[in-house]
Nucleic acid binder design. Structure first.
Lengths: 147, 147
DNA sequence: CTTGATGTTTAGAATGATTCTAATTCTGTA
DNA sequence: TACAGAATTAGAATCATTCTAAACATCAAG
C-alpha cells in the first residue's frame, strides 16, 4: 500500500512547505494510507509503534498536524474546544468565522436538505445532517466580538 | 426574552419525557434563549450563576443534556471524542453509524457542493465545508467492526 | 402529614484527548 | 567537524467533560 508515489508525494509536499522528510512522518502517513478506517492519533500511535517502537504519542500528534498542514490528510473532527449550544431549532447550518471565532446560523431551505440527503447510497438512513462552513463572514464593526 | 410561552414549552417537553421542571433547567434554557450567540456550558454557568449562585457546573451540563434530549436545544459540537484522520482528499462527507460507531466516506458531487455553498448570504466566503450525517448504515456482516 | 421511592443537584474527584515544556537528537550546510 | 535550526521525545500540564457519592426535593400512598 505504501508506494513510491505516496512517498514522493509526501516528500514533495513537505519540501513545498520547507519541512523535512522524516521516518516518523513517513510512517504515520503510511499507516494512514494502509487502512480505509478513520483512526485516531492514539490508534495510529499503536500501529506505528510496531515499526518504530521509540516513537512518542506527541510525535504522532505533531506528524498529523504537519500532514494536515500539507493537505495530505484531513482531520475529521470538526470542532476543537468546548461544545456550544443553540436554541434555534429551525434547520440551519453553522458558519465559523476564522477571524473572530464567532459562530453564525445559516438558514437551510428544506429543498437543499433533501438534495444533500439524496447523495446517500442505498441502505443509508440519516437521522441528522450537520453542515459546517468555515471562512470569513462580513464584519459589522471594526472590532471582533465574542463567540 | 423569557416568556410564558417558552416556560410552558419547557415544562411541556419535560413532562413529555417524564422529567421534572426545575429552576435550574428553567434558568439554563432562559439564558440560552437570551442571546443569539452559541455559548459553551462554562459560559452559561457564569451567566446563570448570577441568578442562582449555588448552581454547579455539573448541573449546567446535566440541564443541557436534558434540554438536548427534549429537542429544545441543539448541541453544536459535532464529534465528541478524539479527532479522526483520513487521507481521502476527494470532496466527501462523513457518515457516522450510530450503532457501530464506524465512520464512512460519502462521495460528494461537485454540483452539490456548489448548491450548498450557494445558501451563504452575501459577504460570506467559505474556505471549507464539512457535512456529517448520522444514522444507520447497511451492515455487511452480522457483527460490528471497528471505527 | 409522615414515609419512601425516585428524580435532581451538588462539590469534588477522575478521565481522557490534546498541548506544552524542556531536553535531546538529527540534518544540512558553512 | 561544528553550528543552527528542525524534529523528536517523555512527561507534565491543561481543559472540557463525566463520574461518584452524598445531600435535597418532590410526589404518591398510606
Amino acid at each position: 500500500m505504501i508506494t513510491t508515489e505516496n512517498s514522493d508525494a509526501l516528500a514533495q509536499r513537505l519540501a513545498d512547505s520547507g519541512l523535512r522528510s522524516t521516518p516518523q512522518r513517513g510512517l504515520v502517513y503510511e499507516a494512514l494510507l494502509k487502512t480505509r478506517d478513520h483512526p485516531t492519533a492514539d490508534e495510529l500511535y499503536v500501529r506505528v509503534k510496531s515499526d518504530l517502537p521509540t516513537i512518542s504519542l506527541a510525535t504522532v500528534y505533531n506528524c498529523l498536524e504537519t500532514l494536515v498542514h500539507c493537505h495530505l490528510v484531513r482531520a475529521v473532527n470538526f470542532e476543537r474546544g468546548p461544545t456550544r449550544y443553540c436554541p434555534n431549532l429551525q434547520p440551519h447550518a453553522h458558519f465559523h468565522d476564522d477571524d473572530t471565532g464567532e459562530t453564525h446560523d445559516i438558514d437551510l431551505p428544506a429543498s437543499l436538505l433533501h438534495q444533500v440527503n439524496a447523495v446517500l447510497p442505498g441502505g443509508y438512513h440519516s437521522s441528522s445532517i450537520e453542515i459546517i462552513f468555515r471562512g470569513k463572514s462580513p464584519h459589522r464593526r471594526a472590532s471582533a466580538t465574542k463567540a
